[in-house]
Nucleic acid binder design. Structure first.
Lengths: 113, 113
DNA sequence: ACTTAGTACTTGGCCATGCATAGTACCTTA
DNA sequence: TAAGGTACTATGCATGGCCAAGTACTAAGT
């Protein structure tokens, strides 16, 4: 039980939410997402992102099309399906609730025993 | 891959943070924590809380003392160790960073492709 | 004494997901 | 042909929240 491990645990599920949000704003491929996540200081590695995208696609929340690239192999450009949009709405509510609940606890200063 | 499952995943690690925070404000036992978590709308069940407390104690972040009760079996009253206080400080920073990073992504409205 | 209900804590196994690591495949450049 | 970069894939592990069942102690009713 160390800090680094808890950081990892805290990220579980949140990443899914962030990824769906990024894709909701326009068609992107994996490296675009990594760039944006990195610039927001949300560290993610390939080995996490690619399996997540595959899971989301297999669940019907995402779809992609192959697009030729001028500098390398073709890329998968992702976008949300209708189901993905609905799912994202649900996640947004869940996340907002969670942040709010956490604030109710951590902003309290009086004891309760 | 459904909403309920993602809610569960999102809670990973965050609960640990909330529990440590509650204990940091005064000695409490498990039911006190459940009451406060419930009133903050953070749903937690016994089967989650008790193992978590045991893990935190075994890691040296918590310590407890038995206190007799007038209405049932004795209770374990928990408090933070010095190490637990330091750990909580680290978690606070991690959580604030994570919330901030998530906001940077979810409050953006312009596309990036 | 015995049963019933309530409170407090324990234990074992399941599952999803982030991560580490290694690997495949394609393109460009020299 | 070789070297390097880019993009995607596959396998297996560790963690922690959950479920379900169980133990143990107290109080109240008969």
């Amino acid at each position: 039980m160390n800090l680094e491990n808890t950081q990892i645990q805290m990220k579980k599920g949140i990443l899914e939410y962030c990824i769906l949000h990024i894709i909701s704003r326009g068609e992107v491929y994996a490296s675009d997402m990594l760039d944006e996540l990195t610039s927001a200081h949300m560290i993610v590695v390939e080995g996490t992102l690619y399996p997540l995208l595959t899971r989301l696609k297999n669940s019907g929340l995402l779809e992609y099309k192959w697009v030729e690239s001028k500098s390398g192999p073709p890329r998968k450009y992702y976008k949300l399906t209708d189901e993905g949009s609905k799912f994202l709405n649900g996640l947004t509510e869940t996340w907002d609730d969670l942040v709010h609940s956490t604030e109710m606890i951590t902003k309290r200063t009086t004891a309760n025993a």
